[in-house]
Write a protein that binds this DNA or RNA. Structure first.
Length: 296
DNA sequence: AACCCTCCCAACCGCGATGCT
DNA sequence: TAGCATCGCGGTTGGGAGGGT
């Protein structure tokens, strides 16, 4: 069975909506409700297909839509949700009141994705990038900034420190990916090749995560047995797929328990460990390190 | 002023999911 | 259960805006 396109009516208008069309659609929906999108254009006197009307209403005309710049909190929430849900924009949108999935998707593709790439993180997997050319470029840029001649963002001490850490992590990851001879770079082993045995391994390897209690808090990250802050942070982003699935499971379980929509917003942040790991903790970590004049 | 380039976002397209008969 | 209509989602595109040369 070949289904014809849902907007194949001949003579149906496409492209940008005029203010007159918007007004017709708004007044019709406000009087009669959405009803059936297929028949709505005819009843509303619009020469558009139903699908186009639905899109225009849901993404633009709906009165409860929040438009404009995304706040830092919203961006952080999108990062976290994307790391768990992937490109499930509609799902993500349910956690951001009054934002549309299209808006979030656009913001991700035009802004957030680039931010992650600049930080050396693969936006698809939320894991460190390890392609050779990227690491060489990053290394070169960092070298320039050390000479004090660069006016680029790398000259920013926080960005620079972050990038250095990221570079070390990514190179370790690259070495690990390309060599089975040594365990250098493997988060389960220290630089001498000795296996690290601590609770963090459990989390990073995605095992023994039957409930949310198994997920380490940021405090636990800060003081894992035998691991200093740097190596702890470097490893924090190598979260396995099974870990993500467990995180997602705990999120959905928590959701069904609380059944709170808007008020659940902050709670959902608080039960996502990656929120603490990737950003807040990073920021705090770098500031503290800078204040104590630490060098990496 | 004219041209080019990049960015952004509204809108479209295709397809899977769902509901109805 | 099959067949069809409709909805909803995610990927992609095209054109306007704005900045640089």
């Amino acid at each position: 069975m070949v289904r014809p396109p849902s907007c194949n009516e001949s003579g149906v208008k496409k492209g940008p909506w005029t203010p007159e069309e918007d007004e017709k659609l708004k007044s019709y929906v406000s009087k009669h409700g959405k009803g059936t999108w297929r028949t709505l254009p005819k009843h509303a006197g619009l020469n558009r297909c139903g699908k186009s009307c639905r899109l225009r209403w849901e993404n633009y005309l709906r009165p409860d839509i929040k438009r404009g710049r995304f706040t830092d909190e919203e961006e952080q929430l999108i990062f976290n949700l994307h790391s768990v849900l992937g490109n499930k924009w509609a799902k993500i949108a349910t956690h951001l009141p009054r934002r549309t999935d299209n808006d979030i998707k656009n913001h991700w593709n035009t802004n957030l994705r680039k931010k992650l790439l600049q930080m050396g993180i693969d936006p698809e997997t939320h894991k460190p990038r390890t392609d050779f050319n990227y690491l060489m470029n990053l290394s070169h840029l960092l070298g320039m900034s050390n000479l004090g001649t660069s006016t680029s963002p790398w000259a920013n001490p926080y960005v620079n420190q972050f990038a250095k850490l990221q570079l070390v992590q990514n190179m370790l990851q690259l070495i690990n990916n390309n060599s089975s001879l040594v365990n250098m770079g493997n988060p389960n082993y220290n630089l001498l090749g000795n296996q690290i045995l601590n609770p963090l391994d459990t989390f990073l390897n995605g095992t023994n995560l039957q409930n949310k209690d198994s997920i380490l808090t940021s405090q636990e990250y800060a003081n894992p047995n035998g691991i200093n802050n740097n190596s702890c942070m470097l490893m924090s982003q190598t979260c396995s797929d099974s870990s993500r699935q467990n995180i997602f499971k705990s999120v959905t379980e928590k959701e069904s328990e609380t059944n709170q929509e808007v008020l659940g917003y902050n709670q959902k942040i608080s039960i996502l460990p990656e929120n603490q790991v990737n950003f807040e903790y990073w920021e705090k970590f770098l500031i503290e390190e800078d204040e104590s004049n630490g060098s990496h």
